[in-house]
Design a protein around this nucleic acid. Sequence first.
RNA 1: GCGCCCGUAGCUCAACCGGAUAGAGCAACUGCCUUCUAAGCAGUAGGUUUCAGGUUCAAGUCCUGACGGGCGUACCA
Length: 544
Amino acid sequence: MESYLQKIIGNALQNMGLDDDQFPEIKIETPRDASHGDAATNIAMLLAKPLRNNPRKIAEQLVDEMKFDPSKISAAEIAGPGFINFRFAKDYLYDELEALLDEGEEYGKTTDNKEVKCLIEFVSANPTGPLTVGHGRNAVLGDTVARLLEWTGADVQREYYFNNAGRQMRVLGQSVQARYNEIVGAEINFPEGGYEGSYIADIAQELVNEHGDKLLSETNEKLFKEKAEAVIFDEIRKTLERMNIVMDSYFNEHSLYESGAIDRVIDTFREKGVAYDSDGAVWFKTTAFGKDQDTVLVKSSGEPTYRLPDIAYHAEKLDRGFDLCLDVFGADHIDTYPDVLNGIDVLGYDKSKVEVLVYQFVTLVKDGKPYKMSTRKANFVTLDDLMDEVGEDVTRFFFLMRSPNTHLEFDVNQAKEAGDKNPVFYLQYAHARIYSILRKVNDLEPFSEKPVLSELKHPSEITLIKKLLSFPGAVSNAAANREPHRLITYLNELASEFTSFYHDCRIVGEEKEVMHARKVLAGATARVLANGLTILGITAPERM
RNA sequence: GCGCCCGUAGCUCAACCGGAUAGAGCAACUGCCUUCUAAGCAGUAGGUUUCAGGUUCAAGUCCUGACGGGCGUACCA
């Protein structure tokens, strides 16, 4: 419809004696207020200055010149300072509704990102402990953006990047070793800044069960570390699965050292003159890119900082042939992003293929009070705990509810409410309610013939149809902005339009043709709700 | 100090590329269950979009400055 309108407006402008390059892009938007029609353009106002004419006069002339198909557009009106408002013909709505029904589970898919090979890296928590609420937003956001991209035609790979070689992992191994020693009654050497969570003791206990006290002879933490990593990763995978998230690949940072990718970055940086030695360390000349200070790539101890593998990792991803590499991370990592982009740029990659999705922090609120969390101090709330308490659907929904770049207040009390205080149920309830009606109608009346959709003419029916038809646009808008909450906003509006229809128009007991058409409309609504909830990774129950 | 994000109803937040009368939910108030699910619906009330300038036909949205909050600013990840 949008391209159709652009075409007829373009033709009209040419009839007025303007060439293609003499007028700006014709933008079609949906007016906020339904009384302003179904689509509008501001083109007359944009032309007011170049044509040195009153926008309303231009609009009048345009409408005179415009030739539209009455089976698609029923009216074009001039309003306000010079908007041209269009109204869709009912026949158009019925045709599109029929197309929606044909597409079924596929309805809402677009080709915006067709042929785009995309890698999205998210979660990427090192295996030092269970996933926490903080990781939750990352996980759900990443997965849902992945789903949105898939719905718009992209080929998406989900990747988890981790590091099992650093200092933190060593401390983790030492922490487990200390607990092991504690259990078998030997001397405890709990490391400074060690991990205090109870899961550490659980892992140690497992080792005791498997090996008794034979591991007392271990001189370093290696074995303990490996066990901890295996156990923790297993838990992380389970937690993700519970949230409907399945990774396609796990990428170990360490492989970048083995493949020589790290050395190649340093070498190239030296060649290009953006790396130098000083005080025993290797520095990246980030001041050349506008930063206040240069940045250390390799510490004087010989250990690289995380920036170096980050750069090598992004180069590696682009080597794998992705058109788009998305990173999801919290606001605290924002500073590394420019370094990585500048780094791969120096290496000769197209940095426009790398895009970062930053989200702000989550505050867990319970009984009106915020929680402070740290994995190391073990005063965190795990994602599993949260899901146990409020459920998987609610957890996903709450993480997606807000724009990624605002702080998220996760109110556990509100999330726990099974009733009207909880926004998740509103969508699920509308879906279940439709199924309840459909069950009833199917019992009463088996419909074999095609519905007569033109029976749908009540304002609530028409409004609902229009809302259903804007679903693909809502998906593509959410995908383009990488903002799942936009889809939630849409689904809330849809559920609300449905309840108005439910309120105004009965289905069961109506005259046969009307009942049939309304049943089909309700079914289409359930379809769109289900498709939307699928994108969000939330179930669409048939009974509640 | 510098960089990034944010400031919208009592609270939590929407508002697509700058568009027409700034919208929801919660909380408050008034009604509605012998009729398809009341986890719902209809309605009332609630706003100088933090402030001051600027850009233009049009600013919550863009620019400058101030104020307030978050995060970062490590030879930590």
